[in-house]
Design a protein around this nucleic acid. Structure first.
Lengths: 203, 203
DNA sequence: CTCACTATATACCGCTCGGTATGAAAATCG
DNA sequence: CGATTTTCATACCGAGCGGTATATAGTGAG
């Protein structure tokens, strides 16, 4: 029950901000993928040495999970807020535009970190793949539930299955990430959003 | 001008079939990606030793390009034949079903080799990424031209841009690959094809 | 058979990887 | 002031990477 004891500083204080360092690590993982990001590149971007990294974050794998937390918290918050849109069509558009925003926010377009991790990690993908899949299953569940509500409200055509529509929407978002990784321009990605919305069923 | 001289066998003959070995290498690259496939795993799957690999195929990078050739020749032939369908809608459906077939053909669903290579290769992606992008640009060009013909024939609604529609279709196919990599079932992928076709504009 | 030539098998190379042992530096507590 | 505790900097570790040198084995030509 000694919670306040953690605030007492004893010994030499660390010279870096863990949140800033984690944010820098996230950028490296996002551009290189989990296996493609080397400890040398990570520590250089974070501005710390390897022992500091291991003392503060555990190891490379634990660092990645924490970076994934940060990514979900900072970059994927639009997913939750999109569910609050009044119509299914508005939900879809917010999802697509949110995806577009995070993919074109940096210097050059890149896919979602989850997509990169999922497709790229092959050798020791065990823990990473499981983590990413669990997070995505959670997002998928939320979208399906939102679309089921939409269907109950008569917001979707009768023939459309909410689960199938959710899978379709995620596929488009992930495909947009692949296009972004392949060097597609911002204009092309915006056009992709508009084309998808033009395809959306009108009830 | 001594072409026939190549048929003369001199020295010890090789004990393996290069095409079979290349096919085995393709499987490894397809599951592991370019950087994730190690020489040890490649040589074991190919049933040859490293010096034989280097003598026959050059190096790992050259082997990958040859494997990509084989992949395009064997697995992506449906792309060319899909263009011969009479209507744009039929072209799209053939493309989607062809993608579904190659992704669910093996033991477990996996994304297109091009997608894997594009998203995964980050460190020395130079030659590999360029190669994959060039091949994809060629496919994209063919599809755009086919859809332009469809538009000229009145086979598409007036508001639909062929280039945008092609980008959209590729995005869905690539998204399907990501879903496959993420452990989606064959039924889910089939449902994705049907949902996409249900979205297709009716003229 | 000998020679020229090519493929095989083994051992090895330099390098980078993720991770760590060690010792010095910097802070608080008594 | 020591004593203690924690962080930082450097050098290092074993393992695996892509790639190769070397020597041996198997073939056709003369």
């Amino acid at each position: 029950m000694k919670i306040a004891a953690e605030t007492v500083t004893r010994g030499r204080p660390r010279e870096f901000d863990p949140e800033e360092a984690l944010s820098a690590a996230l950028q490296v993982f996002w551009t290189r993928g989990y296996e493609g990001a080397s400890l040398a590149e990570l520590t250089e971007a974070m501005g710390i040495t390897k022992p500091s990294l291991y003392a503060c974050f555990g190891n490379k794998e634990a660092l990645f999970h924490k970076a994934l937390d940060l990514y979900e918290r900072d970059k994927l918050c639009y997913m939750r807020s999109a569910m609050e849109e009044p119509t299914a069509r508005a939900v879809a558009e917010r999802l697509l535009r949110g995806t577009l925003n995070i993919q074109t926010g940096g210097n050059d377009p890149r896919a979602c970190l989850g997509v990169i991790s999922l497709v790229a990690c092959t050798t020791q993908a065990d823990s990473i793949k499981t983590d990413v899949l669990a997070r995505r299953a959670s997002s998928d569940k939320a979208l399906v539930e939102r679309l089921e509500r939409a269907k109950a409200e008569g917001d979707l055509p009768v023939g459309v299955e909410p689960a199938a529509l959710a899978t379709y929407l995620f596929a488009v978002m992930q495909g947009m990430g692949v296009q972004a990784s392949g060097g597609a321009s911002v204009e092309q990605l915006e056009q992709l959003v508009e084309t998808t919305m033009a395809m959306w069923p009108t009830n």
